[in-house]
Amino acid sequence: MALETISDGRGTTVTPPRTPVVPRRRRRAWGVTAAVSAIAAVLNLPLFFALLTSFKSDADIARSALRVPDTLTLEHYANAMGQAGYDFPRYFLNSTLISIGTVVTILVICVPGAYAMGRLGLGRGHLLKGIAALRLIPVIFFAVPFFLLFSRTGLYDTIPGMVTANTFISLPLGTLLVMSAIREVPHEIEEAAKLDGCSDYRIVARIVLPLLAPTLAAVAVLVFITAWSDYLFAVILTSSEATPVTVGAANFVTSTGIRWGDISATTVLSVLPPLVFALFAQRYLVRGLSAGAIKG
């Protein structure tokens, strides 16, 4: 009888209350809260510790990690924002441009492409399978050709170059998600529109696109996080101009004299945008990840 309700905390309970059982059930529910809290704490320990370190003074950081700090300081955040000569604001801007650019490019490519494949018979299913197979190829396979081709075409170390590389990474995910949503759009709507003389382009723009809105939101969240997280292509395809935070923050680790306070501050700032984005759009994130796994 413990599994009968799976609403998310706001719904009303379905079980008819049987008086003698209630206190035990409630105690057990709090037990679950305690257990889950402990697990969540362990999972987020790295982030908590980085957050704590970012507010500690250098002297406190150098002492034992278990000691309660004497003072808290914002000095490391000031350093991260440019006072210590780091180019962090620039990396941050680069990451933002790359991630937003990738989201836009993915949507521009995947929505009409998925419609053409799903409804107009483009590729007869083979094309989709080929795109799904891309998910399997280790990204590193493209390191050498991308580096050589980007160097030759002037895309090396540029924002458009990084957008191209990240669009490549997210293409299978974006296509499969949009595809599974298009399959769920009822045929009748499009057929009625066609009878009324609507062109395919109008149908996509006026009818399919609005119906896809929740899926497109999910794609946007997932692609944004994926692009923001990219490290491999950033290492290979950038040197200074287009460096994103993942490489920029890691640079501080290897540069002379590890300043852990500053590194913690830059890392905390770097993980913030995807976290904020994802928490506000958690509904879409869950939908996107699970649709990607279960339906398509």
């Binding site: 969540a40 982030l47 510790f49 997280s229 890691a250 995807p274 994130l285």
Partner: peptide
Amino acid sequence: FNRRFPGKRLLLSLTILPVMIAPALMGIM
């Protein structure tokens, strides 16, 4: 998780937080 308990919504967000963190930044942490 598949039951009702106090604080479920918040704990769900906290539990899936690591998925959204860039692995390279997680590595630094």
